[in-house]
Lab assay of single mutants.
Amino acid sequence: MTYKAILNGKTLKGETTTEAVDAATAEKVFKQYANDNGVDGEWTYDDATKTFTVTE
Results as ranks from 00 to 15, higher is better:
Thr53Leu: 07
Ala48Lys: 12
Glu27Leu: 15
Lys10Ser: 10
Glu15Lys: 07
Asp36Ser: 10
Thr44Trp: 07
Val39Pro: 01
Thr44Cys: 09
Gly41Met: 04
Val29Ala: 08
Ala24Val: 10
Asp47Gln: 10
Gly41Pro: 02
Glu15His: 10
Val39Cys: 05
Tyr33Ile: 08
Phe30Lys: 00
Thr18Trp: 08
Thr55Leu: 06
Thr17Ser: 11
Asn8Thr: 06
Gly14Asn: 07
Asp47Ile: 09
Lys4Thr: 12
Val29Ile: 15
Tyr45Asn: 00
Thr11Met: 11
Thr49Asn: 08
Met1Ala: 13
Lys13Val: 09
Tyr3Ile: 03
Thr18His: 06
Leu7Met: 10
Asn35Ala: 15
Asn37Phe: 14
Asp46Glu: 06
Gly14Lys: 13
Thr55Glu: 06
Ile6Val: 10
Asp47Asn: 09
Thr25Ala: 14
Lys13Phe: 10
Gly9Asn: 04
Thr51Gln: 04
Lys28His: 08
Ala20Arg: 02
Lys10Gly: 07
Thr11Val: 11
Thr44His: 10
Val29Lys: 08
Lys4His: 11
Thr17Ala: 08
Lys13Arg: 12
Lys13Asn: 08
Thr25Gly: 08
Gly38Ala: 06
Gln32Arg: 11
Lys28Glu: 09
Ala26Val: 01
Asn35Trp: 15
Ala20Cys: 08
Thr49Ser: 10
Phe52Trp: 07
Val39Met: 11
Ala20Thr: 05
Asn35Lys: 15
Met1Gln: 14
Ala23Pro: 10
Thr17Ile: 09
Lys13Gln: 12
Thr16Gln: 08
Asp40Ser: 13
Phe52Cys: 00
Asn35Leu: 15
Asn35Met: 15
Thr11Cys: 15
Tyr33Leu: 08
Ala20Tyr: 02
Asn37Pro: 01
Lys28Phe: 08
Ala5Thr: 04
Asp36Pro: 01
Leu12Tyr: 15
Ala48Thr: 12
Gly41Ile: 03
Val39Trp: 15
Met1Ile: 14
Asp46Trp: 03
Lys13Thr: 09
Ala5Gly: 05
Ile6Lys: 05
Tyr3Leu: 03
Ala20Val: 04
Asp46Ala: 04
Ala34Gly: 03
Glu56Tyr: 12
Ala48His: 10
Lys50Ala: 06
Thr55Arg: 06
Trp43Cys: 03
Gly38Glu: 06
Lys31Asp: 01
Ala26Lys: 01
Thr53Cys: 08
Lys31Glu: 03
Val39Asn: 02
Thr51Leu: 04
Leu7Gly: 02
Gly14Ser: 12
Ala24Ser: 11
Ala24Met: 12
Gly41Arg: 02
Leu7Phe: 15
Lys50Val: 03
Val29Gln: 07
Val54Phe: 15
Asp22Arg: 02
Thr55Gly: 05
Glu56Met: 07
Val21His: 12
Thr11Gly: 11
Thr2Trp: 13
Tyr3Pro: 03
Asp22Ala: 04
Ala20Trp: 02
Lys10Met: 11
Gly9Met: 10
Thr51Ile: 06
Tyr3Thr: 02
Gly9Cys: 14
Thr51Met: 04
Thr25Arg: 06
Asp47Met: 10
Lys31Pro: 00
Glu27Cys: 15
Ala34Ile: 05
Tyr3Met: 03
Trp43Val: 03
Val39Thr: 03
Thr17Gly: 04
Trp43Asp: 01
Leu7Val: 09
Val54Cys: 13
Gly9Val: 09
Asp47Glu: 14
Gly38Gln: 07
Gly9Ala: 07
Asp22Thr: 05
Gly9Gln: 04
Glu15Ile: 13
Ala26Gln: 00
Glu42Val: 14
Val21Lys: 13
Ala23Ser: 10
Thr17Tyr: 14
Tyr33Asn: 02
Glu27Arg: 09
Lys50Gly: 05
Thr51Pro: 00
Lys10Thr: 11
Gln32Lys: 14
Tyr33Phe: 11
Thr18Ser: 05
Val29His: 11
Glu56Asn: 05
Lys10Glu: 07
Ala24Asn: 07
Thr55His: 08
Tyr33Pro: 00
Thr25Asp: 09
Val21Glu: 11
Thr55Trp: 10
Ala26Ile: 01
Lys50Gln: 09
Val21Arg: 12
Asp36Tyr: 08
Thr16Tyr: 15
Val21Asp: 11
Gly41Cys: 04
Thr25Trp: 07
Glu15Cys: 15
Thr11Glu: 09
Lys4Ser: 06
Glu56Pro: 07
Asp22Val: 01
Ala34Asp: 00
Asp46Pro: 01
Tyr3Gln: 03
Thr55Met: 07
Gln32Asn: 07
Leu7Tyr: 13
Thr17Pro: 02
Asp36Thr: 08
Asn8Lys: 11
Glu42Thr: 13
Ala20Ser: 07
Thr11Pro: 04
Thr49Arg: 06
Tyr45Cys: 01
Ala48Ser: 11
Leu12Asp: 04
Thr51Asn: 01
Trp43Thr: 01
Ala48Phe: 10
Ala24Pro: 08
Lys10Pro: 09
Asn8Asp: 10
Val21Cys: 13
Glu19Tyr: 15
Leu7Ser: 02
Ile6His: 05
Thr17Asp: 05
Leu12Phe: 15
Val29Pro: 01
Thr18Ala: 08
Leu7Gln: 00
Thr44Gly: 06
Val39Gly: 03
Ala20Met: 02
Glu15Ser: 11
Leu12Met: 13
Tyr33Ala: 03
Asn37Cys: 13
Thr18Gln: 05
Thr49Trp: 04
Trp43His: 00
Thr11Arg: 11
Ala26Phe: 01
Glu15Met: 13
Val21Trp: 12
Ala24Ile: 11
Gln32His: 06
Asp46Gln: 04
Gly14Tyr: 14
Phe30Cys: 01
Phe30Glu: 00
Lys10Ala: 12
Thr49Lys: 06
Thr25Leu: 07
Thr18Lys: 04
Asp40Lys: 13
Tyr3Asn: 02
Thr25Ile: 08
Lys28Trp: 09
Thr2Tyr: 10
Ala48Cys: 09
Thr17Asn: 06
Ala34Val: 06
Asp36Lys: 09
Leu12Lys: 10
Asn37Ile: 14
Lys4Glu: 03
Gln32Gly: 06
Ala23Gly: 04
Thr55Gln: 07
Lys50Met: 10
Asn37Val: 14
Lys28Thr: 10
Asp22Ser: 07
Lys13Ser: 09
Asn8Glu: 06
Asn37Lys: 12
Thr17Leu: 09
Asn35Ser: 14
